[in-house]
Amino acid sequence: MADTLQLKIVSLKEVVYDDYVDSVTLPTKAGEITVLPNHVPLISHLSKGSIRARCKGQQKSFELDGGFMEVTSESRLTVVLQ
């Protein structure tokens, strides 16, 4: 069982972020969700807002206009920005 989550945020221009974090909060079309390690596989449509990633007490935040996210069974979270 993984105890961290691999977060990867990609845009058309670059890989914005690629590292291991403890939890991620994202704005989906159906409301804000927080993804922890070992989340069930999920694909969701993101709306405008900010992604907040927490890693060892520190918080990082990324603005987005929309996009998609995918959580795989290996605790890998990929966000594609629009």
Binding site: T28, V40, L42, S44, F68, V80
Partner: peptide, 22 residues
């Protein structure tokens, strides 16, 4: 990465409709 059972939010159709144009 294949062969996972996925949850879809809000619904598969909505995601399809959004991801295809993208």
């Amino acid at each position: 990465t294949a062969n996972n059972e996925y949850l879809f939010e809000p619904s598969p159709k909505e995601i399809f409709d959004a991801i295809l144009p993208a």
